[in-house]
């Protein structure tokens, strides 16, 4: 279970998170939606210690982690796999070495086990056989999936995904979203997905959180959100509800 209590994050004189409270239950798929620049990615980065909050607490499975040192964060980062908005693959390494990078550091594995883990995680994202390619030789959608494979290779209990489908066409978008859904269920992870895609959130999320101006304006199951009276949520939903009404 993950819990944010009164989380505050400032950049210079700009306050991005304004005392945010949020509880995420084990095993659920949570979507975090909201307007651009409202601190959704910042939330994820605080969780794994890439950014430090200015105030507030972060609890992960009964541990308060916000004051942890870089060393203390190691087990947390093994537990919480993060998939970045950019594919963030290492350009000079092959796909195999990209995926093996984390395995070699986080897990004690023999070369053979590493090999197996790499090919298994590539299979999970339906990309077998590209081990020896360099990232630049793959399409953007494929790079995104290698990035996902690199993270799930560490068998994280918690999967954090930052804007997985921004800039992708509708077909690739749905394929990636479907993949995240299937992997979360298959690997029984708690998943937090930051996204702009309300349709997808309604389709696959257990719970949705909508953020605006550094705080949560509404949260609930997809069905609860559909009935929301919060203006921003209604705005997000308007086109979808309209389309559904047409059909």
């Amino acid at each position: 279970m993950i819990e944010f209590k009164g989380l505050v994050k400032r950049f210079g004189d700009r306050t991005v998170l304004k005392g945010l409270d949020l509880t995420i239950n084990g095993g659920e798929i949570l979507f975090v939606l909201g307007t651009s620049g409202t601190g959704k990615s910042v939330l994820l980065k605080n969780l794994v210690g890439l950014l430090k909050p200015d105030a507030g607490q972060i609890w992960i499975d009964g541990e308060e982690v916000s004051a942890f040192s870089e060393e203390q964060y190691l087990p947390i980062r093994k537990k919480c796999g993060m998939v970045f908005q950019h594919p963030a693959l290492f350009d000079s390494l092959t796909v195999f070495d990209n995926i093996a990078f984390g395995i070699r550091r986080h897990l004690q594995c023999t070369a053979k086990e590493t090999q197996q883990k790499v090919s298994h995680s590539l299979k999970l994202v339906n990309l077998s056989g590209v081990e020896q390619k360099l990232p630049a030789q793959l399409s953007y959608g494929m790079q995104k999936r290698v990035s996902l494979a690199r993270t799930i290779a560490l068998e994280p209990k918690i999967l954090l995904v930052d804007e997985p489908t921004t800039g992708l066409d509708p077909v690739t978008t749905n394929a990636i979203n479907q993949l995240i859904f299937e992997l979360s269920r298959k690997l029984k992870t708690t998943s937090i997905v930051v996204s702009h895609d309300m349709q997808c959130a309604l389709d696959i999320a257990d719970r949705i959180v909508v953020m605006d101006q550094g705080n949560i304006v509404d949260q609930g199951t997809p069905d609860e959100l559909r009935k929301s009276t919060v203006p921003l949520v209604k705005d997000f939903l308007s086109e979808i509800l309209q389309k559904e009404a047409e059909q």
Partner: peptide, 21 residues
């Protein structure tokens, strides 16, 4: 049709398009 509905399976499903095989 596949593109506008965003269906994962269809003629656009090349191994490259990001769809699931």
């Amino acid at each position: 049709q596949q593109f506008i509905t965003g269906a994962i399976r269809g003629p656009l499903t090349a191994p490259d398009s990001g769809a699931i095989n």
